[in-house]
Design a protein around this nucleic acid. Structure first.
Lengths: 145, 145
DNA sequence: CTCCAAACGATAGCGATTCTCATCGCTGTG
DNA sequence: CACAGCGATGAGAATCGCTATCGTTTGGAG
């Protein structure tokens, strides 16, 4: 299996889309991140490297990528949409959000995945995607308790 | 077990909060809904019944209710926050969202709950809340397939 | 009944996202 | 290699959900 950026850029081309000015920048940026990033962060990040992208292009690129299932939208409930590459298999993960410090960290859990599949199947849904966001106090933010 | 509106209004009073002009309207409205509603819908819904609430009051009321754990905020990823009564025990549920028609329906799954608890514990988080949103094509929106 | 502060409603303000539009630059053709 | 056509792009305006502000209202204790 090739790397995610390669797969993504190839998929974009296969979908009949043209060159990769802004799109490529977004793909590159996301590929280098450990976890989800907001559109704002992506925009700033690309510009910080000297990229000349406009906000609109970032959103457009993300839209396309989400459409093609190459990027997943993550909503942790603070009114800002975040995005991250969809990693099939091994890297698929969900998110833990600390209510106190706002830290977001990824986690994986096989049993959880199975439970999700089963639940969806039971209700006649063909599962396309799923978001799980757990909220609470993280280790660091629970000093006395 | 008394009804949710009663519990909610009582909790509000216990928290030292005053009368229930706007707050009561929000509680009443939510109690009558089957599933989550956006702040906009709540506002419109109350006004549709002749209520004179302002948007700000709706948000304020929701904020307070969420704070007191009487209402749960649900984010299905469309950039609009939705709210619904927190039903302890039997009625606790998560959401299935149809990518096609946008329909949102609740579901429950005991195994899923257990998996969530376990996963959080394993990572040192004290779980405060969790949101699970499953996306896909619902029965009705999958005619041929 | 009177008074004070909590609660309220309207509206301005703010930040995130989308829309609009003139321009740019791939990409296939001659 | 130059060209044309059209999708892609960036800047800024517009929109939308949500929050902050502020003067007014009103619950409720004395």
């Amino acid at each position: 299996m090739s790397t995610w950026p390669d797969t993504a850029l190839e998929s974009l081309r296969a979908a009949g889309l043209r060159r990769g000015g802004a799109r490529r920048a977004v793909v590159d940026y996301l590929a280098a991140q450990a976890c989800c990033r907001s559109a704002q962060e992506i925009h700033d990040g690309i510009r910080g490297r000297g990229g000349e992208v406009g906000v609109a292009s970032v959103y457009r690129a993300l839209d396309t990528l989400v459409e093609l299932d190459l990027v997943q939208r993550v909503d942790i409930g603070d009114g800002v949409a975040r995005f991250e590459p969809t990693h099939e298999g091994t890297h698929h993960h969900h998110h833990l959000v600390c209510d106190d410090c706002g830290k977001v960290e990824p986690f994986t859990d096989a049993a959880l995945e199975r439970a999700l599949e089963r639940a969806a199947g039971r209700l006649g849904y063909e599962l396309e995607q799923h978001d799980v966001v757990l909220r609470g106090a993280c280790d660091g933010c629970r000093p006395g308790d």
